[in-house]
Amino acid sequence: MSLFDYFRDRKKPAKTASVAKERLQIIVAHERGQRSQPDYLPQLQQEIIDVISKYVQIDRDQVHVALDNQSDCSILELNITLPERP
């Protein structure tokens, strides 16, 4: 910073580092959550879809599989939206 800059630019610098930290904390936490999922989860989801589609017409997006790890037990949550009856 030279003498001229000193007078020209005195506005406060933007604190972009705190934005970076916040964004990183969110994305890293999200990705760590996915990482702790067991490898079989996507395949499990596919097979569940296959079984259900034998009987009902469903969309892949209508099936949600989530594994929630709590201290002493894990909860496998299946959420399947069936199409409306005609």
Binding site: P13, A14, K15, T16, A17, S18, A20, K21, L24, V28
Partner: peptide, 16 residues
């Protein structure tokens, strides 16, 4: 740049 808030600091990266 870390002092100016333009760059993640050492402790920011350690925290993450």
């Amino acid at each position: 740049r870390a002092d100016l808030g333009e760059m993640l600091t050492v402790s920011d990266v350690e925290d993450i």
